[in-house]
Design a protein around this nucleic acid. Structure first.
Length: 232
DNA sequence: CGCCAGGCAACAC
DNA sequence: GTGTTGCATGGC
């Protein structure tokens, strides 16, 4: 939590998830970010968020975002419309995100999954984590991102950035196991949506700004409590 | 030009 | 079961 407070102090609330479809609305800025993140995104955006989560796999968000925008402009951001699009057309649309043939198939599988979700009633069609993991193309990070940002279910999202930052800080957490690291961090933080949503976003921000693969330790604000600076 | 990006599945042993 | 490889564009 000390790390979370420090990052929040430095960067401010990130307002994730950025929504192409609502940029400039809902108090969001031109890039689709909320100024302060205090509530999960509207459920109507769940599919767009899930699509973004798949398209950004091993891909810079700027590239994934361009692909989401192309789907939005083509009015294809619903499961039914994706499923009625030819594979080669879908692949061409998401080309900026890279791995477009693989990701086109992933978007089909994702769309089929969303079509099978009940839209009303108790539970409101919120999927279980295991159900998301059973979808071809959805692994642990993508599943947790979708649960958190699309469905409002709290949970710590592990990714390469969080592993790198925790490792360099010298934190005694299990870095090699996704679920091990996830539960280990979840024991240390309040299990609240805002904390989880902001923590993941802040770690991404810090990894991009300072804790890059080739890091800028001299200018880093948490340098004093980081073990990695000693090797520089 | 080479390396990397908010992974994942398939495949080798 | 653990390690390696293909996917592929765009930014730096």
């Amino acid at each position: 939590m000390e790390l979370f407070e420090c990052l929040l102090e430095s960067y401010g609330p990130r307002g994730w998830w950025p929504l192409v479809s609502r940029a400039g609305q809902d108090g969001r800025d031109d890039e689709g970010y909320l100024p302060g993140c205090s509530a999960p995104s509207d459920r109507g955006c769940a599919f767009e968020i899930a699509v973004g989560a798949v398209l950004t796999q091993n891909t810079a968000w700027t590239s994934a975002e361009r692909a989401v925008k192309r789907l939005f402009d083509a009015d294809l951001l619903t499961p039914r419309k994706i499923l009625s699009t030819r594979p080669e057309d879908l692949a061409a649309l998401i080309r900026p995100a890279g791995c477009y043939n693989v990701k086109a198939r992933k978007l089909y599988e994702l769309s089929k999954f969303f079509q099978g979700l009940p839209e009303e009633g108790p539970g409101f069609g919120i999927p279980a984590r295991e159900c998301l993991l059973a979808v071809w193309g959805i692994g642990p990070e993508t599943a947790d991102s979708i649960l958190l940002y699309a469905f409002g279910i709290p949970g710590f999202v592990v990714d390469e950035y969080s592993r790198r930052i925790f490792r360099r800080l010298g934190m005694s957490v299990p870095l090699d196991s996704y679920d091990g690291l996830k539960t280990s961090i979840e024991r240390e933080i309040p299990f609240e949506w805002t904390i989880c949503a902001e923590y993941h976003a802040l770690l991404v921000e810090h990894a991009k700004a300072f804790c890059r693969k080739s890091p800028s330790c001299s200018a880093c604000m948490i340098r004093a409590s980081c073990e990695y600076r000693l090797s520089y």
